[in-house]
C-alpha cells in the first residue's frame, strides 16, 4: 500500500500525483489475466487459483478468455512450433498496456524439450516480462512472480525482463562466481573443520 500513500499524500484532502502513477497503481491491483494454459503447468495454475493459494488476494483472479479484455498473458506450459502462431496472434490482439508472464521452465527456455518441435522459450515469439522457473513452479513461486509483476507495473516505463533476486546466494555459489578453485577447496576444508 506504499503507492496509496504517495497518491493520497498530504493532509489537504486532495491528491497530487502524476496521472500515470495513479493509473499504474490502479492497474496493479486489477489484473485481468489470459491463461494460455497448454501443458502440465496448467495443473499448478489451477492450484494457484484454488482455495489454498488463492490468487484473488492479489486482485488477479479473474480469467478472461478473450485477449481483448485481458492485461496479463500467462504463458503456461510448453509452446510447440505449431502453437507459436496462435500465441503470437493472441499477444497481438491484446490491447496496451499488456504484460506477459512465462510460467514454468518450458515457457521460459523450452526446458528439457530441446527438440524438433518445441520453441526454446516463449520469448522467441513474444516479449516476456516475468520468468517463473520450475517444472512446474510451486504456487509460492508463482505468487512471487506475480508480486514482481505488480512491482514492475507500479514503476511503469520500460518492458525489460525481470528476475526475482535470490534472497540469499548460497555460499558455494558465491565462491564459484569468483572462479577461484582454491577458495572453494579452502571453504570445503573449513566446512569439514566445522563438523
Amino acid at each position: 500500500m506504499g503507492a496509496l500513500k504517495t497518491v493520497m499524500g498530504g493532509d489537504a484532502g486532495f491528491a497530487t500525483t502524476k496521472l500515470d502513477a495513479l493509473l499504474n497503481w490502479a492497474r496493479k491491483y486489477s489484473l485481468f489475466q489470459y491463461p494460455f494454459a497448454t501443458a502440465c503447468c496448467g495443473m499448478e495454475f489451477f492450484a494457484v487459483a484454488g482455495p489454498r493459494y488463492d490468487v484473488a488476494r492479489f486482485g488477479a483472479e479473474a480469467p478472461r478468455f478473450s485477449p481483448r479484455q485481458s492485461d496479463v498473458l500467462w504463458v503456461v506450459g510448453t509452446i510447440s512450433q505449431r502453437q507459436a502462431p496462435a500465441l503470437k496472434r493472441i499477444y497481438e490482439q491484446m490491447s496496451d498496456p499488456k504484460w506477459v508472464v512465462a510460467f514454468g521452465t518450458c515457457a521460459s527456455c523450452g526446458g528439457f524439450y530441446d527438440n524438433y518441435t518445441t520453441i526454446p522459450g516463449a520469448d522467441k515469439v513474444i516479449p516476456v516480462d516475468i520468468y517463473i522457473p520450475g517444472c512446474p513452479p510451486r504456487p509460492e513461486a508463482v505468487l512471487d512472480g506475480l508480486m514482481l509483476l505488480m512491482e514492475k507495473i507500479e514503476k511503469g516505463g520500460n518492458r525489460e525482463a525481470m528476475t526475482v533476486p535470490p534472497r540469499e546466494l548460497p555460499r558455494l555459489a558465491q565462491l564459484r562466481t569468483r572462479a577461484d578453485t582454491t577458495i572453494v577447496s579452502d571453504h570445503i576444508g573449513k566446512m569439514k573443520e566445522d563438523k
Binding site: 510447440s80 505449431r82 524438433y116 518441435t117 518445441t118
Partner: peptide, 11 residues
Amino acid sequence: PGYLHRGFEKS
C-alpha cells in the same frame, strides 16, 4: 490434435 507435440518418443 498435436498442438502440444513435444517429441516424447524421440527424446
